[in-house]
Nucleic acid binder design. Structure first.
Lengths: 341, 341
DNA sequence: GCCTATGATGGGAACGGTTCCACTGCAACG
DNA sequence: CGTTGCAGTGGAACCGTTCCCATCATAGGC
């Protein structure tokens, strides 16, 4: 066995091997296979197989302008919510014949913009974005250049793009309703710093606005989740130890907060249920901790699929630049022991 | 504002705008910028900025053969272990100037081979593979064509590639040692069906082989984790209810098993600690469940980085086709209440 | 039986870059 | 002062495709 240059066969070599022209081979591997006679099809098939030929997507997308690639920017890949959505996005992409080029920004605006221009340089045909910062400039530029774009979960000001995510006001209302019904009267809403992330702002605003309607009082707490920080026992303990007989409950704005708060409560020796605990985002372990943690589950896969659907619609040829759509999904309440007094 | 064709500027347009040749623009955006005079650099920079130019990676990789892309095949993206490794891989890729094209196979060999040929068609310059089936044919073909390739965690027979993963025998030994030390005598090892996955076989074989050395008896149980199956109470209950006074413990082969088993134990009302429970793979919730679940943590990020390092080494120009390397990491024991009688 | 429609096939120009090579000045050298 | 060398620059071929167009039978219409 001689040492051969490990180079991939090209369409031209297949053509020669099959005694055909490269046009015909191209047709065979494109979607015009039936324009070829049976005989030619057979010759090309066997030649390609013999050579181990596989069309070069790079060359293909260069000429045709179709990279068959969808880009996705994930703010935090270690957040199970993001992964679940990504799973939905990937499935939907595959179903439409696209592949997913996913980048994780680790919540870092610098990485975000770096990845954004990277994805642009691969000429992705659509972009699903779970924004970290507020990169309106870069995003609007992409839209102007004709890349359809969907914002996931978090909106970005001044960018005219479709948005897919949770119905945040409704989620907060459901949480408040559930907690009121279970007899809690004094609430602490715990969130990561809202900064640019619109759903965080939405949720917090709604919390404040509707609290009184359910006959409850409460306040909110911003919890910066630096990786290795000691969990913020102090602020939470202060709330729990405040005098008064009104039953107290904690409402966590997302899965990462639920984790941090649960740790804190365990460290403080708090009995769940007696003190209410509820979180937005369902996590696999919520049913396992003590009496179970009540959650509002997001339909993650559906959200992912919807995002891709938006992209595909905007890729339709007759696409009149329709106004941005906003798709909001209803959460699902999963009641457990942590809100059972 | 007139409706303009939303097309990206090309290198030629930049060249015209800057009054230079496309060669010079190419040099500017390649790594030969310093071969250009200050003046020309300035003109190109401002022209490119004015036009919003961004080189087309597709075209770039076509000529040069450098896609700057690393492919990754993940068997199950909803497994936190996989995600953690992927995070490490992605960071390492970025550090070396590559981007990651990650595909999830959902443990489906059909998807696996589909994704494999897809990645090949994008001419990825390296491949990190967490294999599902045993696609030796396709993999060996890639290697022969010159694509460096690293197998993650699971080996594949008959494929001469580097392997990065946990030191499985050592992990089992550590688990056995810990459980013996804590006084457990009768063990049940619970694993997903080993099938093609080599580490599962390794771990199970080691478990059987070393059990007696630590003065314990035991057996193993294969747990097929179909998504919606009722957790397998029966088999586990049978083990726990077996007569005898020897303290019993369960050893879970990976994170998904730990989750399923923990659910079962809760449903059965088992007291952790009294009955031992230990799992391979550290999960964020293990410290939260009851007295805490003892785990053997894998250095996931390190594994991911090591995988990329292997790829990079094989890309070095003077690469003599060196024999496959096997890199095995030591696990870290995190003792908690579930193994404290 | 001639002209045209039709279907199967091939030639060659793009696509947007990189890169080899040639060309131009100009400074340094003998 | 004629070479040589080198830094700065541009021309043009090429990477592996797609796709427009041309070619050539063969069949069908009159």
């Amino acid at each position: 066995m001689t040492a051969q240059t490990p180079r991939r066969p090209t369409i031209l070599e297949v053509a020669r091997e099959a005694g055909a022209s490269k046009t015909s081979v191209s047709r065979y591997f494109g979607d015009e296979r039936d324009r070829l006679s049976r005989g030619l099809q057979g010759r090309i098939a066997s030649a390609a197989k013999r050579l181990g030929y596989r069309p070069n997507q790079m060359a293909r997308s260069l000429k045709g302008g179709h990279s068959r690639l969808i880009g996705m920017l994930v703010a935090d890949i270690r957040n199970p919510f993001s992964v679940a959505v990504m799973h939905g996005v990937e499935q939907a992409c595959r179903a439409s014949g696209y592949s997913l080029l996913a980048c994780n920004t680790d919540n870092d605006p610098a990485q975000e913009s770096a990845h954004l221009s990277l994805l642009a340089s691969y000429r992705v045909e659509g972009l699903v974005i779970n924004a970290t910062g507020s990169p309106h400039g870069a995003l609007q530029a992409l839209i102007d250049q004709g890349t359809p774009l969907v914002l996931l979960d978090r909106e970005v000001d001044r960018v005219a793009a479709d948005v897919v995510g949770l119905d945040n006001p409704r989620a907060i209302d459901m949480a408040l309703e559930h907690l009121a019904e279970r007899g809690y009267r004094e609430l602490l809403y715990i969130t990561e710093p809202p900064e640019e992330a619109s759903p965080r702002q939405r949720r917090m605003a709604r919390f404040r606005a509707r609290l009184a309607d359910f006959g409850m009082t409460g306040e909110s707490l911003c919890l910066p989740l630096t990786d290795d920080t000691a969990t913020p026992h102090a602020a939470i303990a202060a709330f729990l130890n405040r005098p008064g007989v009104a039953p107290k409950a904690l409402l966590c704005a997302n899965g990462k907060i639920t984790l941090a708060v649960t740790r804190t409560l365990q460290a403080l020796g708090v009995r769940l249920g007696e003190t209410g605990l509820m979180g937005i985002d369902e996590l696999e372990w919520c049913e396992l901790v003590a009496p179970g943690i009540t959650t509002l589950a997001q339909p993650t896969e559906a959200i992912g699929r919807a995002a891709v659907e938006c992209l595909m619609q905007r890729r339709e040829p007759q696409h009149h630049p329709s106004p941005p759509r906003h798709i909001h999904y209803q959460p699902v309440l999963i009641p457990r022991g942590s809100t059972q007094r």
